[in-house]
Design a protein around this nucleic acid. Structure first.
Lengths: 357, 357
DNA sequence: CTGAAAGCGCTTACAG
DNA sequence: CTGAAAGCGCTTACAG
């Protein structure tokens, strides 16, 4: 590996000057700067990142806490790939790399990675690698550790979990608005007995979506029945079970708002198993707009999250704080109601040209 | 951040001894070791990673080259999330972090990230960060850069692209075997006019799947017609167009093997648009077993790749080479034919208990 | 505008 | 088994 010293010698300058060319080019005279730049290019020299990080006490890396631990076997982000894509693109264009931190539950093995749910471990890992900041993806049960980390003052942005701190903010969809829009859509189609399948307790988006359901019902002037609110865990199975429970009620709902597409699909299966037709006998709206939502039969009407923007917004907020800005307001991404076939529409149109699966 | 010096002072030893406790504990006397360990734990000390990397010329990070560049807008890995999961889990358990390298096409901006398709840039980035190794995900057009990097002697493992070098290997599915099994399955169902929709030229899995198709036809004693081999790009659109072309032949095929599920779905749409029933009029097999394969109607028979194992195997091979082993043989992951409904089966069974979407 | 020097926080031969 | 010292390759006040 060619070092600054070699470049310096070839240029007849000191390493300090070489360093300046790479860090504060304006402080170097034009002729010297150009000479150094040329030689550096010829030798394919770039400053060593480890040395640089050590010296500046700051690296060009941003950490990502993404729980892949066996403790939470079922956990699967509905759109991680899009999220990573947006994140990485935005970060890349500013010269930052994304470090997926090794995580482990093994407390004896602390050196090997951050211990999940241990904010001290996050802080330590960030400091030891001189990370410029952290992106925190909620996995359901480390929210407390996230908020604790946020208070350390190190830059971080959390996804789908509310945190606050001198250099902390978060991005999430406007879940309440999206949910209430879905409910109002159902009401506008003439439904009055509208139930909801909620996400897990303690999960922020789940809570907001339930809130949105309640608000939507109120907006539509519909009463909320306690037995129309059944809780799930975002996954398909809970949607199936929950829907079956709802259908067993004395007055079953005619429509259901599921707080995730997976649960909506579960509900679809339950309806079918009960001999009901969707949307004729039961209207269903989901949330997320995952890829399969358009592919199930009937295609799922759902509240779409802006998947690419999730990562981009997180990167933007984080980079801002890293470049010194104070913590910005939390980012509330607008959602979009995607009307497909699972609710029925006043006027359904055949789609011959672009057949749908 | 607490440093080794502070720990040393509190223990009345030198920093060298503290360092040894963390690197070669066996060389330190038991009482001293225990004292240092206790104090380190109390102070929450762990060696600074940047300093360590600089000093040892080796970090605990493994780089990942994953192209998210705008140049290849459509590129989408069929199972990146599973792959990352397997990769990260395996790496984590050995104490390695995964660094998603910033990539950029902007040659003037070289400091900011690796320039795609530039093996020199990969080598430089690896050296500057003292990466322990590199994982290379093929994105279609950087295969040359990958093979070049592999020859540098730095440890690397490529996914779905053949590379060779002193410390280089790759993992890929046994695409040929999977494809030929699919074709034989079709033949066993009585089909003789079996066509194939291939992946893009120059793509290794695509080539192997076409090979497998040819072998499967030969195994079944069926002649191969040139006009039954139409090329696509793995994406849905090309499957649609390709199928439409096949159906326009004088003697259209009665079955088709698509080299990806996306193309199979495209073929499904084309068949439907042409008024054909699947599987009655046309049998379709895909490849990959992506999530939606089970959800389309009819559910897609397909050749499943072992998605989790992809990442795990890559991590295993890489870690082996990092820990000094010579480059292992390329890993050929077995595939599995998943029979669903898109080919018809001699005896179809209704699935009342577990209804399928 | 430039250089000499200290410092970032470790690791590792080398002595003892 | 342990310490003093050199070194990893930069960056950044501090002088000039």
């Amino acid at each position: 590996m060619v070092t600054a010293r070699e470049v310096a010698q070839l240029c007849g300058v000191s390493v300090a000057t070489v360093s300046r060319v790479f860090n504060r080019p304006a402080t170097v005279s034009a002729p010297t700067r150009e000479r150094v730049e040329r030689v550096a290019r010829e030798l394919d020299f770039s400053p060593n990142e480890s040395a640089r990080a050590l010296s500046r006490q700051r690296s060009a890396m941003i950490g990502l806490v993404w729980d892949t631990d066996h403790r939470r076997p079922g956990w699967r982000h509905p759109f991680l790939q899009d999220l990573l894509l947006g994140l990485k693109s935005a970060l890349s264009s500013h010269g930052y790399h994304l470090l997926l931190l090794a995580t482990s539950d093994d407390a004896r093995n602390r050196t090997a990675g951050v211990s999940l749910a241990d904010p001290i471990a996050y802080v330590g890992m960030t400091r030891r690698h001189h990370l410029a900041g952290l992106v925190l993806i909620d996995s359901g049960s480390d929210a407390e550790a996230f908020t604790a980390f946020a208070q350390s003052g190190l830059p971080c942005v959390a996804l789908d979990v509310a945190v606050a701190g001198p250099k902390a903010t978060y991005v999430t969809s406007d879940n309440a608005a999206g949910a209430s829009e879905a409910v109002r859509h159902l009401a506008a189609l003439g439904h009055e007995r509208i139930a909801t399948l909620t996400g897990p307790r303690g999960n922020a988006p789940a809570t907001a979506r339930t809130e949105g359901y309640l608000r939507g019902m109120a907006d539509a002037g519909l009463p909320v029945r306690d037995d129309y609110v059944v809780s799930g865990d975002f996954y398909r199975g809970s949607g199936f079970v929950g829907m079956r429970r709802l259908l067993a009620r004395k007055h079953p709902p005619t429509a259901v708002f599921a707080a995730s597409d997976e649960m909506a699909i579960g509900a679809l299966l339950a309806a079918r198993a009960a001999g009901l037709r969707v949307p004729a006998d039961l209207a269903i709206v989901g949330f997320d707009d995952i890829e399969v939502a358009a592919l199930v039969d009937p295609a799922l009407t759902t509240v779409a999250q802006d998947k690419a923007e999730f990562g981009t917004a997180a990167a933007g907020a984080l980079l801002g704080m890293i470049e010194n800005a104070a913590a910005p307001e939390p980012v509330l991404l607008p959602t979009q109601l995607i009307v497909r076939d699972s609710c029925g529409t006043p006027h359904r149109q055949a789609s011959a040209a672009a057949p749908r699966l």
